[in-house]
Simulated assay, not measured.
Amino acid sequence: MAEGIYNNVSSVELSEADRGERVEKTVTIYMSADAVRAQETNTQRETTTQQTVVRTGIRCSRLAVVCVGLLCVLLLTTNIVLYMYYIRDQTIIANLTAGRETLLSSIRNLTEERDQLKSSYQNLTEEKEQINNTYRNLIQEYHILQTKFHHLVKLIEKSCFKELKTFGSSFYFFSTENKSWSESRQDCREGGADLVIINSKEEQMFLIDQKNERISGLV
């Protein structure tokens, strides 16, 4: 376009017009060329500006896409981390629940064992009381037997009771005096004894034999 403008200027210089007019036209043409150049410069600037704006828009779009991608990755990572924490919490809750059930079962077992021990303790206490009662009864019987033994020893030492007969662990005295039942019992109690009480068939046969012997001796 500039070469065309300069060609036009040459043709104007070879015309038949005067120089003053030629100079004025030449200046006018040159001013027009500067205007064209300025317009071209403005056009180039506008084109460059538009390209810059387009490039900036593309860069912004790319940056927005990258930011969205990063946000998606961050959101996915956050979801994965939250899911892992959720799984961990569920596992911990399950373990705690199982531990609680185990503790409750242990508590129930311990409670049952405690009740059994209480029952056993009560039974042992009752058995202890029974043993103590039996022991006291045996002590009383021992004292009674000891007292009877001392009375029997005294009876043996008396001259009137020298003829004693034994059967088992008992001593028997057969009196030859004729007395009533009350008098005979009173006499025996004064000596620390009592009238005989037959407790078995063997004891009865022993007494019958002793009676027969004494009857035979009297005859």
Rank of each mutant, 00 (worst) to 15 (best):
Y6L: 11
Y6K: 06
N8L: 05
S11D: 14
S11K: 11
S11G: 07
V12H: 01
E13V: 02
R19L: 09
E21Q: 14
R22P: 00
E24P: 00
K25L: 12
K25V: 08
T26P: 00
I29D: 01
Y30T: 12
M31L: 13
S32H: 07
S32T: 08
A33Q: 02
A33C: 02
A35E: 15
A38E: 12
N42Q: 12
T43R: 02
Q44L: 10
Q44R: 03
R45Q: 08
R45Y: 08
E46P: 00
T48M: 06
T48L: 13
T49C: 03
T49R: 04
Q50T: 06
Q51N: 14
Q51I: 14
T52G: 05
V54W: 01
V54E: 13
V54R: 02
V54G: 03
G57V: 15
G57R: 02
G57W: 08
G57C: 06
I58K: 05
R59H: 06
S61M: 13
R62I: 13
A64V: 15
V65M: 11
G69D: 05
G69K: 00
L70D: 05
L70I: 04
L71R: 01
C72H: 01
V73N: 01
V73T: 02
L74D: 02
L74C: 05
L75Q: 06
L76M: 10
L76D: 07
L76A: 12
T78P: 00
T78D: 10
N79M: 12
L82D: 04
L82I: 03
Y83S: 08
M84A: 12
I87H: 02
D89K: 00
Q90R: 05
Q90N: 11
T91S: 14
A94R: 05
N95S: 15
L96W: 06
L96N: 04
T97I: 14
T97R: 03
T102C: 09
L103F: 10
L103E: 12
L104I: 10
L104W: 05
I107P: 00
L110V: 08
T111K: 05
E112R: 04
E113M: 11
E113N: 10
D115V: 07
D115C: 03
Q116M: 11
Q116K: 09
K118L: 13
S119C: 02
S120I: 11
N123K: 07
N123C: 06
L124T: 09
E126W: 04
E126P: 00
E127Q: 13
K128G: 09
E129A: 15
E129Y: 15
Q130H: 09
I131Q: 05
N132P: 00
N132R: 09
N133M: 09
N133D: 10
N133T: 07
R136M: 09
L138A: 08
I139Y: 08
I139A: 11
Q140P: 01
E141F: 04
H143E: 15
I144N: 07
L145Y: 13
